[in-house]
């Protein structure tokens, strides 16, 4: 069963990764990805605020993780995503996958990220000295899904 955590609090990605890796008994490979709040081009990001849809968020993440478990030979998967206010450099989210061999863990981690970006109900807002602006979805994020839909 993949583990899904949605929380406002900060987290220690190293500790979470050790916890995930530590409970694997039949996996030779663990892959992880972490998303970090980056500054805006003008360099004056004060904070990022992430809104989400409580209830649907957990369901959507569980569905994406289950899909990854079905498509690859995975021992386990983990998704943690924060919401609320966070500063530049803070960790927003992480995914981790575990498998017998690395190819499955790498591919599944990329799949989780591609789907999570445009199918999990989170919305980012950047707060700078100029005010607040919603981050717009990028066409590339939607395009990234197509490679998993054709033949994958």
């Amino acid at each position: 069963m993949p583990e899904i955590i949605v929380q406002a609090e900060t987290f220690d990605m190293g500790a979470m990764l050790n916890r995930f890796a530590g409970r694997q008994v039949n996996a030779g490979a663990v892959v992880s990805f972490s998303g970090i709040v980056r500054d805006v081009a003008t360099g004056d990001l004060n904070a990022m605020e992430i809104e989400h849809y409580p209830g649907m968020t957990e369901r959507a993440l569980a569905k994406i993780a289950d899909e990854a478990m079905d498509r690859w030979s995975l021992a386990d998967a983990f998704i943690l995503h924060r919401h609320g206010r966070m500063g530049p450099g803070e960790t927003i989210m992480m995914v981790a996958t575990a498998s017998r061999h690395r190819a499955d863990a790498f591919a599944a981690a990329e799949f989780l990220m591609d789907y999570l970006k445009s199918r999990a109900p989170f919305w980012k807002k950047e707060l700078t000295s100029d005010g607040a602006a919603w981050v717009e979805a990028r066409d590339e994020d939607e395009d990234a899904l197509s490679r998993w839909q054709s033949g994958g």
Binding site: G35, I50, H52, Y53, M56, H81, I92, M93, M113, L116, K117, S118, R119, A120, P121, F122, W123, K124, W134, V135, E136, A137, D141, E142
Partner: peptide
């Protein structure tokens, strides 16, 4: 029923 802009997680 919920309405929202395209999602921007990750």
């Amino acid at each position: 029923v919920a309405f929202f802009p395209p999602m921007t997680g990750g």
